[in-house]
Design a protein around this nucleic acid. Structure first.
Lengths: 114, 114
DNA sequence: CTATAATACTACTATATAGTAATATAATTA
DNA sequence: TAATTATATTACTATATAGTAGTATTATAG
């Protein structure tokens, strides 16, 4: 990573920025089980129409989802399953950290009653 | 990922948010080769002192770096090498995407002179 | 062609935060 | 103790963007 140029690093940062919003992760979760149109994503996530459209556009521009119009509606599909690997990595890391913190609290507790 | 609760998903989003800033990735790059103090990170990255301190604090709170004071200065170390794996994954994905776009442009070019 | 339904876009507000200057804090040295 | 050095904190400005209401666009049905 240290050999990455500033420009490349900026692109990596931008990619993470796309994934750094709860609503967008919820949209991605909604798409995980398969292609969905905007209305379906709205139902699943509870987000507003304009908001879902905007987030899907951002995800499409980042190459994370693909848009394929069908009739009057627009279906979106996960184009980049990598994101789920990323999320799982982060998730397991967060779990590990919580366990460590929990153990530290236990050790502090032990010290109170020697 | 679809089975993740909203709360867990929010934590994942927060983790990505920490990594979604160019300056913070630069700070992490500076630390990749080993423990550094704030002044050293300032020199390597060219960022201001208050700014570096702030970013390091954010990284420490996220459990990505560790702080260990030594005398009058504070040294920081990568605590979570996972971030470099994440960055490499994203980076290779971005490269793949650029190649695809390049190929599409070439195909368009072919069509101009049949 | 008109009406309807689904999606996209525009303009706006509210909020979060990166960067910075000034200051505070803490450790070392004279 | 006073001066110095390194880091942290505070207060502020500027900028980016999430969410939303209203509107525009596009495709289908009648």
């Amino acid at each position: 990573m240290s050999q990455l140029s500033t420009a490349a690093l900026a692109q990596v940062a931008d990619y993470f920025k796309v994934l750094s919003e709860l609503s967008r992760l919820q949209v991605l979760c909604a798409l995980k089980s398969g292609s969905k149109n905007v209305s379906e994503v709205m139902e699943i996530t509870g987000l507003g129409q304009a908001n879902v459209s905007k987030h899907l556009k951002i995800l499409a521009q980042a190459g994370i989802v693909l848009r394929h119009p069908k009739g009057v509606s627009a279906y979106y599909t996960i184009a980049d399953p990598l994101i789920f690997d990323l999320c799982e990595l982060v998730c397991s890391r967060l779990e590990t950290r919580l366990q460590e913190q929990s153990q530290q609290l236990q050790q502090l507790d032990m010290l109170r009653q020697p």
